[in-house]
Amino acid sequence: MLKPAFILLLGTPLTAVAAQPVALSLEDTFDAYVQVILHGNEASKETLRENLLLLENSDSVDAIVDALDALQLSKAAFNGTAMEPVSRALEMRRKTLSCTITNITRETVHSTPQAKVAYRCAFPDLSGFFATYRNAQKRRAVVGDVPEDAKALFVAFANALRDAPDRSHEGSAVFLKMPDNGPWLSSNLPQLGMTLLQQALPFDTWNTRVEAESVPTVTGIPTCDLMMAAELTFIARHHPQNPFLSNGMLQGNLLKRVEGMSDEEATRDCRMVHERNRELWNREKTD
């Protein structure tokens, strides 16, 4: 005699027994990305993995999801070094990080649903520590690497990271809806992890600022001013009769180029040009 539970199972539609996974909504997809990027949330990582596995090409899903947690990668690199206090402070501070959607604009392009999601985040504002960092770098340039100095600097920075006020960071991400009711995907929201890393651990940015203090100010954007100084130095060394050295045309062109860009956009653009120029200069030296 069949048991009642088994009889009920026989009468249940097959689709209810083996239901197919349903793609996350746009809002839930954004939240899953943010929870992984900001907090390294394991449940959100699994949710995002399951969502991305709805795509046919799923070989790189684990790598994609793990790469979103940029802060965790840095934290692991700090363990056992003078920056271990920074690692502990970062783990504490990331619990307070947040990003919320401020607006969603939807449209359909070539039959593909798209959405632009504007968001606002609360990140630590460490600008008040820059003067301390600059002084430490100037001392290092004079006396060399002193382990005790480095340890004291990173302990002070860790304290600043824990206590720093919030600053507002605004951005936007474009999402595309995959066919056949597939998941929403964003190519540029993962960049939020790098933005957060640069703001929570701004040492590279600060080093560039310190270096740019020794070159003429053209745009006020350190990377762009360093690029211009390097370009003029190269021309002076290898093409001393070039009129660009004295007529200000290169500086004017740079100002026009970055006009209307945010500092972040201009920095990316100037860095790209700087690297391209460096390749050309190195090639010219070897020709």
Rank of each mutant, 00 (worst) to 15 (best):
L197A: 05
A156M: 13
R167S: 15
E148H: 00
H169D: 01
P165C: 02
T208L: 02
W184R: 07
M227C: 04
N159Y: 01
L161A: 11
C224S: 14
A158L: 00
T219N: 05
M194S: 15
S186R: 08
V155H: 02
E213M: 14
T217C: 11
E211T: 09
M228L: 14
D166R: 02
F203R: 04
F175N: 07
P222T: 05
H169T: 07
L153K: 03
E213Q: 06
L232A: 00
A200F: 05
P202V: 07
S172H: 13
P216D: 10
M194H: 09
D204Y: 09
W206Q: 10
D163A: 15
Q191T: 01
Q198H: 10
A150H: 13
W206V: 02
N159W: 04
E148C: 08
P147I: 01
P216T: 05
L176A: 08
D204L: 00
K151I: 14
T223M: 10
A173L: 09
N207M: 11
A212I: 06
L153V: 01
A160F: 03
L226Y: 14
F154A: 06
D166A: 15
A150D: 15
V215A: 12
T195F: 01
E231Q: 15
A173T: 03
L197M: 06
M227T: 06
Q191W: 02
T217H: 08
P165L: 08
S186N: 14
W184M: 01
E211P: 06
K177D: 05
T219M: 03
A160C: 12
D180T: 03
